[in-house]
């Protein structure tokens, strides 16, 4: 017999770790958020979000994150479906090709988009070569959204692909045998059964998109100020850690809020990993 009680102590080092490196830091950030530089209690760091500038960047972040998530979902679902239906022996290899770009430094990849999108960049050279009007989207919201879609697309593809591989093919065949056409089968069987993957994908794209500050720095050129940029500036330039912490808490609340909405959609959720 395995001594369950004794074996469970293998998790003891991790339990200590969680307390120090996961729970305690959250109390620290909360502590900074609820005090001023003199150390007195205040709520003003939290209410600072109602400041017009902060409110505008929060709203912009939500908008960009929302659009990014929708575009990722629209691009990723067919990719996952095609990969799933691919009749080749080493499917794993093709799936891995979607992760491989992550091994090229992400900052450099976004920088490459800067080069592609710039006014006399690669995209415009191609467009004018084939006689189409050029586009000027670098340093706009569009470019930031494009960069985020690019960066987070694999996070949408993989969970949906995993969910699709768990579907029992016989269920899909049964629907077809019972006379459902491709579209009905897709809407009534495939999509509902891959719901877990869709929800994981949405969370894994929306949360980082909501809080990103690097993509907006590089492709927004300082003109697209997301809430992540505001927080970063409070810590690096303004050196107002209390205000930065307060805004971080607000960001956290929005992350939790969006996740609880997604969990409402997914009542069948049974805990576990999101990846």
């Amino acid at each position: 017999m395995i001594n369950r009680f004794r074996t469970s102590f293998l998790a003891a080092p991790y339990a200590v770790w969680v307390l120090i490196c996961t729970i305690l830091p959250l109390f620290y950030i909360l502590g900074y958020a609820l005090t001023n530089d003199a150390g007195g209690f205040t709520l003003s760091n939290l209410f600072a979000i109602t400041d017009a500038v902060h409110l505008k960047s929060l709203w912009l972040s939500i908008e960009v994150a929302f659009v990014t998530t929708i575009i990722c979902l629209i691009i990723a679902y067919p990719v996952a479906l095609i990969l799933h239906n691919l009749k080749i022996s080493n499917k794993g290899f093709v799936v891995f090709l979607f992760i491989l770009p992550m091994w090229m430094n992400f900052m450099l990849r976004i920088l490459a988009w800067q080069i592609i999108l710039s006014n006399n960049g690669i995209l415009n050279s191609i467009l004018s070569a084939i006689g189409l009007p050029t586009v000027h989207i670098l340093y706009t919201k569009t470019a930031v959204t494009l960069g985020m879609v690019y960066d987070f697309l694999p996070y949408m593809i993989l969970p949906i692909y995993n969910a699709l591989s768990k579907i029992n093919d016989q269920v899909v065949e049964a629907a077809a045998d019972l006379g459902a056409n491709w579209w009905t089968t897709f809407i009534k069987i495939t999509v509902p059964l891959s719901k877990d993957g869709i929800i994981s994908g949405i969370i894994m794209v929306f949360v980082p998109a909501l809080s990103s500050f690097v993509v907006s720095n590089l492709l927004g050129g300082g003109k697209v100020l997301l809430i992540g940029n505001v927080i970063e500036q409070e810590f690096t330039l303004a050196r107002n850690w209390n205000l930065g912490s307060g805004l971080s808490i607000i960001l956290m609340i929005f992350v939790l809020l969006s996740m609880s909405i997604m969990n409402k959609v997914d009542e069948s959720e049974n805990g576990g990993m999101l990846v």
Binding site: P208, S211, S245
Partner: peptide, 8 residues
């Protein structure tokens, strides 16, 4: 969010 983890 990464930024919150990093800061905390």
């Amino acid at each position: 969010a990464d930024i919150v983890t990093g800061i905390s």
